[in-house]
Design a protein around this nucleic acid. Structure first.
Length: 414
DNA sequence: TGTCCACTGGAACGTACGGCTT
DNA sequence: AAGCCGTACGTTCCAGTGGACA
């Protein structure tokens, strides 16, 4: 027994852990090296360089999928730009705003004001008033302002491009200051949402970020791993696998880094001193599981009920349920928890929505004599649904529900 | 060959709500 | 505080339909 404890304690004492610096793997960490983005860095640098001579720079529009380094490159260049400007004594303000977090025009404008040192209440003022204050502060400061609007597509899709129109035109009313804009979009077809006038002025310059391939991702991960992990903690096999998995899925560097971080946490928890391929695979499963569970948990009530109906049918071995079957079960569930069911037309739409996010698989089929409908199966693991709904206060009681309509003989099922 | 099922999916319209505007 | 407007979410209505079956 002494031997067992002795070795256990020794192992604990000698376990160096895996992480040297966790921060390095966070989303908002900005590395000093951005491998395979040298061209983009140079390009953005060339565009903003005129600011250092006191001139306005061209507006720039950057687009590319998530995790291709758009935000990192922009922030990287901005950081260097500000340092250089301070060094040579030129007054430049660079404000970074994430439109998805800011959400509304008002909040974006108030953040801009704040960044310039003007006080604006977080609510209460008319939009036009905030805009006036922004312009006045800008004029008063006599500065060159570079505004970075990240995830600009989220804003425009939700609220329209009005604020962009105002911002692109603001220079016409300024005499002592100048504003340039860098817009960053994840959506490549985002242009279609913009008014032609806004588009032409916003995209004086354009830059597209291609996804990373597996070998590029490998370099990025290796670079990051050097800082994040103790020497030798990441095996070559795990690194390659991690890069390959992320490359297969749109070359998203953020996903790749997430994968690495979760794998490292799994290895750490198990007391392993190395990150192995099996840890990466487990991490992949965990991330996917969490993503699905999160999506299910945040569904609106009726969508949950529809999904749950499909689950109950699947559990009773009805794997190719049709719309009518699902609606029957759904109505029972509504009755069970005492809410009024929606119409079948609406449920048909909800089924299509769930299909488009991948929680269900639905396809339209014709059953000839027996009409035209959709055949529907679950698109995700049954256990995830069970798990999420068990913990759902309102729906928990339905997890083991036996649909009455299943007791009756089915009229026709294929 | 025509019939007819069990829907699909478009369209118009009703209602609630949040946030801007006055 | 009250009106206004856009959006989200539903309802009602209905024309359209692929193909098994008589």
């Amino acid at each position: 027994m002494d031997d067992v404890l002795e070795s256990l304690f020794n192992r604990f004492i000698n376990y160096a852990g895996i992480f040297k610096d966790r921060e390095v793997l966070r989303h908002d960490y900005l590395p000093n090296q951005l491998p395979h983005r040298e061209d983009q860095i140079r390009h953005v640098g060339e565009i903003v360089a005129p600011l250092l001579k006191g001139c306005r720079c061209s507006n720039l529009f950057i687009y590319g999928k998530t995790g291709t380094g758009k935000t990192a490159v922009t922030k990287y260049v901005l950081r260097k730009l500000i340092l250089k400007a301070e060094e040579i004594g030129v007054k430049i303000n660079a404000l970074y705003i994430n439109c998805r977090f800011a959400g509304t025009e008002y909040r974006i404008l108030s953040q801009l004001c704040e960044g310039l040192g003007a006080n604006v209440p977080f609510t209460g003022l008319a939009l036009s008033e905030v805009f006036d204050r922004f312009r006045d502060t800008l004029e008063f400061n006599k500065t060159l302002l570079l505004v970075v609007l990240d995830e600009i597509d989220a804003l425009v899709k939700a609220k329209g491009d009005n604020i962009l129109y105002e911002l692109t035109r603001i220079n016409e009313t300024l005499t002592k200051s100048r504003v340039s804009i860098i817009g960053i979009s994840n959506d490549l077809r985002f242009k279609e949402w913009l008014d032609p006038r806004v588009l032409s002025s916003l995209s004086e310059e354009e830059l597209v970020f291609r996804p990373y391939n597996a070998s590029e991702l490998k370099d990025i991960l290796a670079e990051r791993a050097k800082l994040a992990f103790v020497e030798g903690a990441l095996t070559e096999g795990a690194l390659s696998l991690c890069a390959a998995l992320a490359a297969a899925e749109h070359g998203d560097a953020r996903r790749a880094i997430d994968l690495l971080r979760v794998a490292a946490e799994i290895a750490e928890r198990k007391g392993d001193s190395k990150i192995l391929e099996k840890h990466i695979r487990e991490a992949e499963k965990r991330i996917e599981h969490d993503r699905v569970a999160y999506a299910v948990k945040n569904l609106p009530l009726h969508s949950k009920l529809v999904l749950h109906s499909v689950y109950l049918l699947a559990r009773a071995n009805v794997n190719n349920a049709i719309t009518g079957d699902i609606y029957e079960v759904y109505m029972e569930l509504c009755d069970e928890i005492g809410i009024t069911p929606l119409t079948q037309r609406r449920i048909s739409s909800i089924i299509s929505e769930l299909d488009s996010v991948g929680l269900l698989n639905a396809r339209v089929v014709s059953l000839g004599r027996y009409g035209r409908t959709k055949k529907i199966r679950l698109g995700i693991n049954r256990m995830v649904i069970r798990e999420v709904f068990s913990n759902d206060g309102r729906l928990g009681s339905l997890v083991n529900y036996e649909p009455k309509c299943l007791a009756r003989p089915p009229n026709h099922r294929h």
